[in-house]
Amino acid sequence: MAVTRSVAESATESAPGTSVVDVRNLRKTYPVKGGPEKVAVADVSFQVQRGEIFGILGPNGAGKTTTVECLAGLRRTDGGTVRLLGRDPQADPASVREDVGVQLQEAALHDRITVGEALDVFASFYERRADPAELMELLDLTEHRKVQFGKLSGGQKQRLSIALALVGKPQVAILDELTTGLDPAARRATWDLVERVRDSGVTILLVTHFMDEAERLCDRLVVIDRGTVVAQGTPTELTDSLGGDRGVRLRFADDAGRGRALDLLTALATRDDDVTGVTPAGGEIEVTGTRKVLFAVVRELAAADVVPDDVRTVTHTLEDVFVHVTGREYRADDDADDNENEEAA
């Protein structure tokens, strides 16, 4: 388990107190009537540095939301320590309210309040305030200023929710399942927005069950499964940790070409150490090997003038990392655990 070992190493990298967020051995359980208590978070540790987009990735029910709720002082922990900006939100939840903006999973406003009113009234809660008009501009909400919350689309609600998390000029923003329910265009727009917010100096803690979102946005991340951290690092570190295996997929116009290529490459695999495996996959051929596998394949086929229609390199994704460290398929709705939101009691 190379990945989990690197977790332990990077956890000790930063001295306590230098991180914006410092979570150590967090544990949170919920009582269950007539049964053993339910462990929502068993053992989670991570540190976030200023200016990072830090991801907390895992299937639903993994304990992600509970973790950030403990961090924000919205829930009592059962063990471990949490520090936010050097303060202890468990001992004094009010001490972090001014500096932390939270975007919760579900819509949380009165249906009849307008966009402009919501921003103005939330701004009034804070000593330092962002300009609501500027935020509306940034989040593409200006034209919806007078629209009531209940009449907004899912994407507009989500953007308002982000605006409300930023209206107090926070140093840290916790964004929970930011793009759930958004269409692909709105998701990409939201990702761009998160990067712009980070560029303005806000440290971002991004809770998500979307692998692609974490891979695209996060500087570093932890992968949480069943209440424990199973992997930690930058997206590249995590995918590279799976080993040197590279893959190339080839597609051919006809069976004749494919048959010739298969023969050539199978022969190549017996004499070239950079090529370790050749397997027909559907109508294609998959070749695996070292970093040089692509060169070897191209050289061999070019010499014989066998021209594939399409060549794709197969890279590891965070999904592969999850499968590797848990031994299970990644499914957003993991039935190993109930949805973590229902425990709100």
Partner: peptide, 10 residues
């Protein structure tokens, strides 16, 4: 969730 949302603010 209005009460919960407010709980995250001052």
């Amino acid at each position: 969730g209005v009460l919960r949302r407010l709980a995250t603010t001052p």
